[in-house]
Simulated scan of single mutants.
Amino acid sequence: MNPRDLPQARPLLVVDDDRKLCGLIRDYLAPHGWQVDMRHTGTEGLEAARSGKFEAVLLDVMMPGMDGFEVLRELRKSSTVPVLMLTAMGEEADRIVGLELGADDYLPKTFSSRELLARLRAVTRRSVSPPAGDDAIAKDLVAGELVLNEGCHVATLAGEALELTALEFAILATLLKSKGRVKTRESLLEEVSDRRFDVFDRSIDVHVSQLRRKLGDDPKQPRFIHTIRGVGYKLMDEGAGS
């Protein structure tokens, strides 16, 4: 086979001070089409992540000096690259903080290799625009001044571009496609991250909270995203009520 016919490896940045773990991740992902670049300090990781060369970033929370939270906080000022956080087992607080800072998803440090691959595929699938051509010409999804086009991977509010992470974009698209109808937390999580809902999993609620902040939506008097208590969420046209 001509080397030029082989699929190009997908660039992934792993930021973790555990060099052995980084090596294990690299060795596992390489046969699955990932080219892993490693950084072992938060400062070096942030600089590399800002380069725009990577499809995703796998970011450890606990690092000496600049920790993963600070890296993510600074990164989100200029980049929406998908970020998968590595958290200590059972540390729900770490997961929530990471999601609130703009992480797309998280993995406990006890992750299996299959789970890592599945989560990577999920967060990157949502961030890749379709190829040019007729299939890329998607119909706008509209709710009042909110407009989203999946083909161009662009969302605007009153003509201003919204800086959304891949998962936020996917959640908003899913809600817009079901405008006026309730989407359960279970269905939202399964559709946007390809994993099952756990009753203790607050990730969807955190992502929706971040979406509301970016939409300028007051949860007590929402213009767009309405909470259906105990069930999930419903998106309405601005001013349409619940």
Rank of each mutant, 00 (worst) to 15 (best):
M236Q: 12
E168N: 01
L189Q: 13
A240I: 10
L75G: 02
V182C: 03
E150R: 12
R26E: 12
K20Q: 05
K220F: 13
E74N: 08
L101D: 01
Q35S: 08
R95C: 15
H207Q: 14
G180Y: 06
E115G: 13
I96Q: 10
S242Q: 06
D94K: 10
K53Q: 15
L46S: 06
R19Y: 04
S78Q: 13
L189Y: 03
I225M: 03
A122P: 08
C22F: 06
F197K: 11
S187D: 14
E115M: 14
T124I: 04
L164D: 01
P82Q: 02
M89W: 02
I25V: 15
S113G: 05
R19T: 13
E186V: 04
A158Y: 04
L101I: 00
L120H: 07
N2W: 12
I204Y: 03
L58H: 05
Q8T: 08
S127G: 04
S209H: 08
H226Y: 14
D37I: 09
V81M: 12
G65N: 11
D60Q: 05
L189T: 05
E115I: 14
G98Q: 01
D27W: 02
R213A: 15
S112N: 04
Q8D: 07
D198L: 15
S178W: 09
V208D: 11
G232V: 08
L167I: 14
G90K: 05
A155E: 01
S112Y: 09
K109H: 00
P222H: 11
Y233M: 03
K234I: 14
A103Y: 01
L101A: 00
A138M: 12
D16H: 05
I96F: 07
I204V: 15
Q35G: 08
R195M: 14
E91S: 07
S79N: 08
T80R: 13
S193Y: 02
S209K: 15
E44F: 07
V147P: 10
L75E: 05
T43Q: 13
